[in-house]
Write a protein that binds this DNA or RNA. Structure first.
Lengths: 354, 354
DNA sequence: CATATCTTTGTGTGCGTACACACTAAACAA
DNA sequence: TTGTTTAGTGTGTACGCACACAAAGATATG
């Protein structure tokens, strides 16, 4: 039988009210009784019944999640799925989550959302940290109001965030390079394919990946050529010409990497290339979004480096909930596993549900 | 405000007792009232408060988990960690889990455990399906008593298990072969290292991996040599001699695969080989147990193919709990993701906690 | 010494549900 | 008629805890 408050009260020779005051540090307890109760608590190894506690307290939490808006099949859709899944699960702890979307190519929209969220006085916040400075400012405000917040996407050091969930994109870049070099004989040319998308977007994540990639090449003393090629999805002519030249002038395979999550768009573009040239390319991309998975299965892409994006969102919400409900302190930095996906194992990756 | 039973009762013009009888199908309700209540239930979109329900019901579940006994740092230790982790989490639902250990090289010990478990009349059982026939017999008994059970390790088709959590070892074998061939130039010799361990253990899992591996070689028209080498950890002389000959007679790299989870033992054995020969080997192993991870980091092993073994145990317990507590029906077959681990990403794999 | 004030302690109610039990009315048997 | 059974229904208590409130005791004030 589990020890309950009445048991403690009996043992300490006090009423349940006094025990309650001790447990919750509500004060108004004499020194002697306080000691008696604390002793009983320890000796009987009391652990509160969370269910009963929650039922009685009528507590309820409201969280806000601030993430980029997304189109179907894109990276951020995955993260949101995780958040929504977690939202379902914490419903039983009287916890509600509102998701706010900002335009990831427009800081103003982020700041606007932040204002809205501040007004609403949430009990916890999940923030996708795409805009470092505004996030820092927001964090200060949250600190002041003692509202716990969790970062996802990329970490911002020296903040008082409860926790961070994301991936080490630098290492991911290194692994990309290693896989590319090791799995391709006589690779002497590597190109970075950059697909124009709205404003020129070079995110922290992309920069890190590139740095990791390049560092690996330096470490292993790579002597081949490295080239950057720009593609405009609307008008891919120019890029295709550059690429064609590159492939034609090379008797060996050519490696290609795309630093953002949209290698599937590149796969679409290169459909126009003749078979023999296409087969000379060894492409590595990032993130298991539907389009990329398809490209992987079609053998257009050789490897996808991924992380459980959905878990980022899921874990972030759960961390907040567990912290507030169960007072569990999460690790401050949580890197997701770096997953290597081939045509062969991608189904099992995708198949595994939260 | 959430709808509660009294609200339903009021709306339907009956007492809470009647609503309760309808909700739980306890019968003894007239047709008219039943319809009234059901209508109210639907219209008000009633969802029970799990916390209150659990508190009131004083329900408590007892699960048994039947797994192989293990030594520290071995495969089954991981699975048990998952089970224990899940056990902690479901404690709040008044659920207790007893873990039973059998000797995986001795069917009799399994049958003995089964008898013990049957007597204790558990509410749910997790079974590591190493011994197919006895498991089937046990499953029949559980079916008869309407006790839900979940398989882990390998699936046994055509059983009434609630669910299965495990990995597709055939595909894992294929991927092993692909990685080995693609990441090694001029590979023309592959050996299967088999380390003797107690009785000759060739598990279903190992057979599957081998089949997948060989099938890939056939598919890709591999023309090299394939050899099986036996190693006795007590007396590795003979095996080492064979291996030495193999390496010396070969100017190209040699691939090696270990089908069970103990490639770290092989890594120990080959420490006796001269550096130049050791470096000629490209080894692939299975499962991220501590010894293997170390071997991976030491560059003795090139790839580890893994699955979240701990998740198998964790998910199995959670599936039982969610089924009984929340009436959630899990998928019947759940393959774990097939994880590819390199020296570079293994830390992030291991680091990620349940 | 009576009264006011403050501190400490105990009691009671409610959270939403489950379930035992009591009660009613109708049907049936003796 | 009376007692017994049975289907249908409502009531009350308990689950373990939180919290408002009442009570009691201690101290201060005039």
């Amino acid at each position: 039988m589990k020890v309950k408050i009445v048991d403690i009260a009996k043992k300490a020779g006090v009423s349940t009210g006094t025990v309650d005051r001790v447990i919750h540090n509500r004060g108004k307890v004499s020194k002697e009784k306080l000691e008696l109760v604390e002793k009983a608590l320890k000796e009987m190894n009391y652990e509160p019944n969370i269910l009963a506690s929650f039922l009685a307290s009528k507590r309820n939490f409201r969280f806000a999640a601030i993430v980029p808006s997304y189109t179907s099949g894109s990276y951020w859709e995955l993260a949101c799925e995780g958040i929504k899944k977690a939202a379902e699960e914490v419903e039983k702890y009287n916890t509600q989550i509102d998701i706010y979307y900002f335009d990831q190519y427009n800081v103003a929209t982020f700041n606007e959302i932040v204002q809205q969220v501040i007004v609403k006085e949430y009990d916890g916040v999940v923030i996708a940290t795409l805009f470092e400075k505004p996030v820092k400012a927001f964090a200060k405000d949250l600190d002041f109001n003692k509202v716990p917040y969790v970062f996802i996407d990329s970490d911002i050091p020296n903040q008082n965030n409860l926790s961070y969930f994301g991936s080490n994109t630098y290492i991911t870049g290194k692994i990309a390079a290693r896989l590319l070099l090791e799995s391709t004989n006589n690779l002497n040319t590597i190109f970075f394919a950059h697909i124009k998308f709205k404003r020129s977007e070079i995110s922290v994540q992309m920069r890190n990946r590139e740095k990791g990639f390049i560092d690996y090449l330096i470490e292993t003393d790579f002597r081949g050529r490295i080239q950057h090629i720009e593609f405009d999805p609307e008008n891919a002519k120019e890029g295709l010409e550059t690429l064609t030249k590159l492939l034609e002038n090379n008797e060996y395979p050519v490696g290609g990497i795309i630093l953002n999550s949209r290698i599937y768009q590149f796969a679409d573009i290169i459909q126009k290339l003749p078979e023999n040239l296409r087969k000379k390319m060894y492409l590595i991309g990032h993130d298991a979004i539907p389009g990329n998975v398809e490209a992987l299965k079609n053998d257009d892409v050789k490897f996808l480096l991924s992380q459980r994006t959905d878990l980022q969102g899921y874990d972030a919400v759960k961390a907040l909930s567990n912290f507030l409900v169960f007072k569990e302190q999460p690790a401050k930095i949580n890197y997701m596993p770096i997953d290597i996906l081939l045509k062969d194992n991608v189904d099992y990756y995708y198949n595994y549900k939260l």
